[in-house]
């Protein structure tokens, strides 16, 4: 079920401002790919172009081609909601629906898909919560507000909500940056388990995290403020962290800039 993503000359704008330029990369199914680079180099922008969340902002647009298993997600005839169902997204700050219970949060996506049958929802919720390593902590209080959980639990709840609709790809934008170290470990472990089924792309500021969880790493950077972000180097994580072929990558991962 996991799928291959191919970006060809992807360029994204916020109004007149070009945030990323000519990004070319291929992401293989059932791998974890890390996007690293200094702040403002366009990692989030690229990530949000993949599931067409970029265009939600007024004036934002994307050029180039982005395909998932050969199908262009920006094709005129493609239903954008179908794209987003296929490509799930976990955000930087945990964002459970504040008015919904834990259960309702997990099944929110299924309800949007028109699933009404209680037994189907209950089973799906349990499956997703188990997959997100949250089941044991919340199984006795599924009716309580999702916003009442700790930050780490909320983020795992959001992961459960994302995978409950069984997407092909899961995008994560700095999913641990608002969390404590223990929750971070829990989520990293979760990523190992998830890559059996999903293609995962994760933006992270944390080098250790990138080297621990990812198979491939993409390094983005900008020349100077106001310039568009570019993909500098994209290779196996092992190679990027031990023997990068571009000087700039080496400078960044050894902490000499960024």
């Amino acid at each position: 079920m996991a799928k291959r993503i191919e970006a060809t000359n992807v360029t994204a704008y916020y109004g007149a401002f070009k945030a990323i330029e000519n990004i070319n990369m291929t992401v293989e199914p059932k791998t974890v790919t890390a996007l690293i680079g200094p702040s403002g180099c366009g990692k989030s922008t690229f990530l949000r172009s993949i599931n067409r969340m970029h265009e939600v902002l007024p004036g934002a647009r994307v050029e180039g081609s982005l395909t998932i298993d050969g199908q262009d997600v920006y094709d005129r005839d493609v239903d954008v909601t179908a794209v987003r169902r296929m490509i799930g997204m976990v955000f930087q700050r945990p964002n459970p629906f504040p008015t919904m219970s834990i259960f309702e949060n997990v099944v929110a996506g299924l309800r949007l898909n028109g699933v009404k049958k209680k037994s189907v929802l209950t089973d799906a919720a349990e499956k997703a919560l188990r997959a997100a390593n949250l089941w044991d902590e919340v199984k006795d209080r599924l009716g309580k507000p999702g916003a009442g959980l700790s930050g780490g639990q909320q983020q795992r709840l959001c992961i459960a909500r994302t995978i409950a609709v069984e997407p092909q790809v899961v995008l994560m934008d700095e999913p641990c940056s608002a969390l404590d170290p223990i929750s971070t470990l829990a989520i990293e472990e979760l990523m190992f388990q998830l890559k059996d089924q999903y293609t995962i792309i994760i933006v992270t500021h944390n080098m250790q995290q990138a080297s621990r969880v990812s198979d491939r790493t993409a390094f983005f950077s900008i020349e100077k403020t106001g310039d568009p972000g570019r993909l500098i180097e994209y290779d196996n994580t092992q190679k990027i962290f031990t023997n990068p072929s571009v000087k700039k990558t080496e400078d960044y991962i050894t902490g000499r800039f960024g």
Binding site: V56, T81, A82, R84, F97, V165
Partner: peptide, 19 residues
């Protein structure tokens, strides 16, 4: 953040408003 969460789950605009 909540509006984007709904949209990212594949909600149409009206579904996002309802969710």
């Amino acid at each position: 953040a909540n509006e984007e969460a709904a949209l990212a789950l594949g909600a149409t605009r009206w579904e996002m408003i309802r969710t």
